[in-house]
C-alpha cells in the first residue's frame, strides 16, 4: 500500500515541478505578505510581548499552506477531464489509497511552500531558539496540509468542473484564511469570530506553530495536534467513501 501511495504522490510532485511558474508564484506570494504586512504593521503593534512581524510568521506559514493544499485538489477534476482518472480507477488500487496518495503529493508541495515562507522569515529576522523547532514546524505543516487536501479532494469529487470548484473554493477559503488567528489574537476578538475560528482547522495549526516558536497560544499543544490529526482522518475517510460511490 505505501508503495502505491508513494507512486501516486510522486506523480503529483512530478507534475507540479514541471510547472515552474507555480513555484515562483508561491515564493513571491510568501514574500509580499511577510514584507508588506509584517514590516508595515510592526512599528505600530506588538502582541503578547512579541513584535507583530514575529506574531505574523506562523500565520503566514498557515496561510501559505491553505491555498496550495485546497486548490491543489482541483487537479482531481483535471485528471477526470483529461481522462487520466480512468487509468487510476481501473488499477487494482483501493480508493482510499488513491485519495491518500494524491493528498500526500499535494501536501508535500504545500509543505514546501510553507517551508519557503519559514526560510524567508528567518532571513528577515524571525528568531528560532532551538533547531528542532524547524522539523517540528514542518511536521505540523504536513499534518495540517493532509487534512486540507483531503477536504479539497472530497469537494473535487462532488464538483465536476474546475470553474465551480474555484468559485466555491473562494467562498470556503477566505473565511478560513481571515478567521484563523493569523492576523490577530483570538482572545480579544468578538465571540462570533472566536467561535468560527474554533471550528477552523487552520486555527489549530497556527496556534501550534506559535506555541513552539513564540511560546504564546490559546489551546494546549496536544489538543491542536489532536484536532489536526482527527481532521485529516475524517476528511480522508469521507473523501474515500465519496470517491467509491461516485466513480
Amino acid at each position: 500500500m505505501w508503495n502505491d501511495v508513494f507512486t501516486l504522490a510522486y506523480r503529483e510532485v512530478l507534475i507540479l515541478t514541471k510547472i515552474k511558474i507555480r513555484i515562483l508564484g508561491l515564493i513571491f506570494n510568501a514574500l509580499i505578505w511577510l514584507v508588506a504586512m509584517g514590516f508595515g504593521l510592526s512599528p505600530l503593534l506588538s502582541i503578547s510581548g512579541v513584535s507583530y512581524f514575529a506574531f505574523l510568521v506562523p500565520g503566514m506559514i498557515g496561510i501559505n499552506l491553505l491555498f496550495p493544499s485546497f486548490f491543489g485538489a482541483s487537479t482531481l477534476i483535471t485528471d477526470r477531464q483529461f481522462g487520466f482518472l480512468k487509468e487510476m480507477l481501473v488499477a487494482p488500487i483501493p480508493r482510499t489509497t488513491l485519495v491518500l496518495g494524491k493528498a500526500l503529493g499535494l501536501s508535500f508541495y504545500a509543505t514546501v511552500s510553507a517551508a519557503m515562507v519559514l526560510a524567508f522569515s528567518i532571513i528577515l529576522g524571525f528568531q528560532i531558539n532551538h533547531w528542532w523547532t524547524i522539523p517540528a514546524l514542518i511536521g505540523i505543516a504536513l499534518l495540517a496540509s493532509l487534512g486540507l487536501t483531503c477536504f479539497g479532494l472530497a469537494l473535487a469529487i462532488k464538483i465536476k468542473d474546475t470553474q465551480s470548484f474555484q468559485l466555491l473554493g473562494n467562498f470556503i477559503v477566505f473565511p478560513f484564511f481571515l478567521l484563523s488567528g493569523a492576523f490577530f489574537p483570538l482572545d480579544q476578538a468578538p465571540w462570533f469570530i472566536r467561535y468560527f475560528s474554533y471550528i477552523n482547522p487552520i486555527t489549530y495549526a497556527i496556534d501550534a506553530m506559535r506555541q513552539i516558536t513564540l511560546g504564546i497560544g490559546h489551546t494546549p499543544l496536544i489538543l491542536d495536534l489532536g484536532v489536526l490529526f482527527g481532521f485529516f482522518i475524517i476528511t480522508l475517510i469521507v473523501a474515500a467513501k465519496l470517491f467509491d460511490k461516485s466513480e
Binding site: R11, L14, I15, G83, F84, E87, M88, A91, P92, I93
Partner: peptide, 23 residues
C-alpha cells in the same frame, strides 16, 4: 480506453512507469 487516459503532463516513459508501479 477509446478516449485518452494518459497523463498529458507526463512523458511517455513516465506514464508507462506509473502503470508498472500501479500493477
Amino acid at each position: 480506453f477509446q478516449d485518452n487516459s494518459l497523463d498529458i503532463d507526463l512523458t511517455a516513459k513516465e506514464n508507462l512507469w506509473f502503470h508498472c508501479r500501479m500493477y
